[in-house]
Design a protein around this nucleic acid. Structure first.
Length: 215
DNA sequence: TGGCTGATGCGA
DNA sequence: CGCATCAGCCAA
C-alpha cells in the first residue's frame, strides 16, 4: 500500500492541536512521528524533544502579550499548521501551532529519532556517516527533513508535513511515552525571557540518544 | 570559544 | 531608512 494511504489512517485529529493547554500538547507529542514528503521522498522519525510556547503570557514567545507582526501571525491561526521561521539568519525552526484561532500558542520540535529516509537526510545534512546530530537540535532536524520557511502556515496533516501516531518502519501504532520516561526542564536559548526562562516547558524522552546536546 | 548569517521589528 | 537582536550549529 502507498505510504500516503497508510499515513492518512493515522493522522492526529485536529482536536489534538486545538486544545488550550500547549504544555500538555508539547509533552504528548513525544513519541509521535513526523514525516515529510517532497517529490515522493519520505523522511522523518519519532519526536523525542519539544518545547512549549504560549503567546498570551510567555515572554519567550514571539507573540508575547499577543503581539501581532508579519512573522507571528502564523501562531494566531487555528492549531494544526506549521510555524517555520529563520533563526540567527541560518537555521529554519519548525513549530506546530496549537490552540484555537487568535490564541498564539506553538510547540517547537527540537529533536527526532530518524527512522525513514535516513540516506536522504544524511545527504541534506552533507553527512557521510550517520551521527547523532543528524536530527538533534531544531536547526538540524529542519535541514534533515528539508523544511524551509516555504512551509510556514502549511498543514501538519499533509501533503508535505505529516504528524501521525504511526511508526512506518515497524508498521505499528505509536505507543504513548510513560510519565516516568519524560524529562522536564527549562527551555534552551531564551535567557532574555527573565523569569519565564525557568519554566519547565522543555520535554524529552529519558536516555534517548537523539535528544539535542543542549542542556 | 567565537564566527557565521540574514530576517525581523523597532525607533528615527 | 539604520541598527540591535536573535527559540543554533560547527570547527577547533
Amino acid at each position: 500500500m502507498k505510504t500516503q494511504t497508510i499515513l492518512k489512517e493515522h493522522i492526529l485529529p485536529n482536536s489534538f492541536y486545538e486544545r488550550d493547554d500547549v504544555v500538555s500538547i508539547a509533552k504528548e507529542l513525544l513519541g509521535k512521528y513526523v514525516y515529510t514528503n517532497f517529490e515522493g521522498v519520505w523522511t522523518g522519525g519519532k519526536i523525542v524533544e519539544t518545547e512549549a510556547y504560549c503567546g498570551a503570557t510567555d515572554k519567550a514567545c514571539h507573540a508575547h502579550l499577543n503581539r501581532r507582526t508579519n512573522r507571528t501571525q502564523t501562531m494566531f491561526l487555528k492549531g494544526g499548521v506549521a510555524y517555520v521561521y529563520l533563526c540567527y539568519g541560518i537555521h529554519h525552526l519548525f513549530n506546530i501551532v496549537t490552540n484555537k484561532q487568535d490564541h498564539a500558542d506553538a510547540v517547537l520540535v527540537r529533536g527526532i529519532e530518524p527512522t525513514v529516509g535516513i540516506e536522504k537526510m544524511m545527504e541534506r545534512r552533507n553527512m557521510k556517516k550517520l551521527q547523532n546530530r543528524i536530527t538533534a537540535g531544531p536547526g538540524c532536524l529542519t535541514q534533515a527533513l528539508g523544511m524551509t520557511t516555504d512551509l510556514d502556515k502549511s498543514s501538519v496533516s499533509g501533503p508535505d508535513i505529516w504528524l501521525t501516531d504511526y511508526d512506518l518502519v515497524n508498521s505499528k501504532k505509536a505507543t504513548d511515552v510513560e510519565e516516568s520516561q519524560v524529562i522536564k526542564g527549562p527551555r534552551v536559548g531564551i535567557d532574555y525571557a527573565g523569569e519565564d526562562a525557568k519554566l519547565p516547558w522543555r520535554f524529552s524522552i529519558k536516555d534517548n540518544k537523539w535528544v539535542s546536546p543542549a542542556k
